[in-house]
């Protein structure tokens, strides 16, 4: 086989085809046709499609590379501290992502998981998120905990009234200037607020038999 070029080539092809069909194709067969779950009790189906502005915000999230530090996948309650940290009451399941154009699972937690960030308690309003993205400082704290992204904001003169979403407390009133979120910042904020997968699908219910608990204890 190693001497005959033709058989060698067939071997390479077989390795590729086997690898490709064993993961991408098999996974696609299993998940490719996943549909939303219709709940008779609520007369609606889940997950819901994200609003258009949030879908555009996901592209901003992707192009800034936010997934380099933030995951969007909650691990099940007995596997890690995700639930205890308030990132989600149940583990993320494949159905959560079917309407996302570019799912941002991420593989690094330098910052917190954001899968349910829009539903966190207490909620942060749009102005608060804007302030945070601009300064990188959580309100009430002094240390920088996130890289500041001033490029998501316009520093422009006030014409007429001050814009409704202008950041407060950053420029002196007399300067007649204001710092306003750009279109991209607004979509990104809408996206972050839309992140919330609270609905409990049948496959997401946590089953904790005695054996599983023992496993978690180890």
């Amino acid at each position: 086989m190693m001497k005959n070029g033709f058989f060698f080539f067939i071997g390479l092809l077989a390795a590729f085809v086997l690898g490709w069909s064993s993961i991408p194709l098999l996974a696609h067969k299993q998940l490719g046709a996943l549909t939303p779950f219709y709940d008779d009790g609520e007369s609606s189906s889940f997950p819901t499609r994200p609003p258009g502005v949030a879908a555009r915000g996901q592209l901003v999230y992707a192009d800034l590379g936010c997934a380099a530090c933030h995951t969007q996948q909650v691990r099940r309650p007995d596997f890690g501290s995700d639930k205890a940290r308030g990132w989600g009451d149940r583990q993320s399941v494949a159905r959560d992502y079917i309407f996302q154009v570019r799912p941002q699972l991420g593989e690094s937690r330098i910052g917190p998981d954001l899968a349910n960030w829009g539903g966190r308690k207490p909620p942060v309003d749009a102005a608060g998120i804007a302030q945070f993205l601009h300064s990188g400082v959580v309100s009430g704290s002094k240390a920088v905990s996130h890289p500041p992204f001033p490029f998501l904001f316009d520093d422009r003169p006030v014409v007429g009234e001050v814009a409704a979403d202008a950041l407060v407390g950053l420029v002196e009133k007399s300067s007649r200037r204001q710092i306003v979120p750009t279109e991209r910042a607004r979509t990104l904020i809408a996206y972050l607020q839309s992140l919330n997968n609270a609905y409990e699908y049948p496959e997401a219910r946590h089953v904790a038999p005695a054996a599983a608990k023992e496993g978690a204890h180890k």
Partner: peptide, 13 residues
């Protein structure tokens, strides 16, 4: 593009 989590699965592959 494939849908949902198939993207990270295929990217991982």
């Amino acid at each position: 593009p494939v849908r949902g989590v198939l993207q990270p699965i295929i990217d991982g592959w």
